[in-house]
Nucleic acid binder design. Structure first.
Lengths: 226, 226
DNA sequence: TTTATTAATGTCTTAGTGACACTTTTAATA
DNA sequence: TATTAAAAGTGTCACTAAGACATTAATAAA
């Protein structure tokens, strides 16, 4: 039989959103040691009594720490090692999540230990544990996925225009894309449908789209050019 | 403070190779309960005293159970839940690995509790725990990655011809591909170099290629067509 | 020397993205 | 009410990498 203990097992969430042309990640201030008072990714220990899976832990922690459920959630990867947590060998299952800014802001603004931090500002902030490395890996994944899928749509409200989608994509990959290419992809993916309502954002009114209910995410066979 | 125990933490490996036009996965027979005597993926408990990371555990277990180190190893994903192991809530970090058949066969043939099972045969075999589901997810990942990268090269010996590469790719995705397309990708990826040696496999001798030392894997911007 | 077979190349087609000019709509202004 | 400017949306050609497939090259075996 085994003579050793099971290592510490946590989950961490990298929840992204886009607001005012900035890609932001949700950070929470740690209220307990270790790293008390430092900014960190919202996460915590897996509790088998409560959670049916690590994904459930991820959702539960997001709800506890930010009051929201993400529009999109997928596993990023596991980070493990003897030195990433001062308490000893630890393993964290990291989840990568997306949400629309409007869905969350009311709650998050009122909690002063949770905050949206823009990706650029992240460089100048010390994060707990290896959370900055984790956030960077998640960012890479988000950027890569943006090139071959419509995941950025999950950073938008339930009704959105092509221009909003374009704006979000450009913010994520840091490069302008062709509106025409996006329209072709919206059409080809068959993930969205036009609603009979228009957005009045400036001059000409824009067609609003929504995700078709219960639709699966489509991966394109080509990347947008980098 | 937390009142609960850390859940069981294991790793499992899905090690693939290609041999005689069949895609095969390495299975080992379980020598202890639970599921004693059943075929399973080679894996085991993470031991923080020995392993510096879950990836180290994966490599260690592959070495212990099959005597080999893979040419390619990456994290697949975590599977967790209260029912996947009869001992209770468990979490397994699954790794996805590739190796050339020739590198392993000597050792594996002599160990009668480790065996290469072809993907087709897998359907008719009962695997321990949720290992069949895990193997299927790994297979999907392998097939997807084959469409946009040269990972299948890691299923080949260190020197290989375009024809061998073509054969391996076709076995993995179950569809024929254009030799011309592969040559273009071999060239474009800049991952391989011609060696001044030729393979005498039939009629005209074929150029042998090898991986450039220390090279990173390249992802193409388009998929091969499905 | 011939032949059959595998290796490798040339080149046209196809499909999806990029570029960009052009048309349409509509709120704001004259 | 007519005009205008800006954003929304369309048309179309260029570009690039893959697919298709005929052609050429090499070579072991007959």
């Amino acid at each position: 039989m085994r003579s050793y203990e099971n290592p510490m097992l946590t989950i961490d969430n990298v929840l992204f959103t886009v607001h005012e042309n900035a890609l932001k990640v949700l950070l929470v201030k740690r209220s307990i040691a270790p790293c008390k008072g430092m900014w960190s990714l919202p996460g915590g220990f897996v509790d088998p009594k409560v959670d049916a899976s690590t994904e459930d832990t991820a959702k539960r922690k997001l709800l506890e720490k930010s009051g929201v459920q993400p529009n999109y959630l997928e596993q990023l990867e596991v980070f493990s090692g003897p030195n990433r947590d001062p308490r000893g060998f630890s393993v964290t299952v990291v989840y990568f999540a997306l949400i629309g800014y409007q869905q969350t802001s009311i709650h998050i603004d009122t909690v002063n230990d949770a905050e949206w931090i823009s990706i650029e500002d992240l460089e100048n902030i010390d994060l707990a544990f290896d959370h900055k490395d984790i956030a960077k890996v998640a960012l890479q994944r988000l950027r890569q996925k943006t090139l071959y899928s419509m995941v950025p749509a999950f950073c938008l409200p339930s009704l959105f225009t092509i221009s909003q989608l374009k704006q979000v994509i450009e913010t994520i990959i840091g490069k302008s894309v062709q509106r025409k290419s996006l329209m072709r992809r919206v059409e080809a993916s068959d993930m969205f449908e036009e609603v009979d309502e228009k957005a009045v954002t400036g001059k000409r009114q824009a067609q609003l789209y929504k995700l078709k209910p219960g639709v699966n995410i489509v991966n394109f066979e080509r990347n947008l050019s980098v």
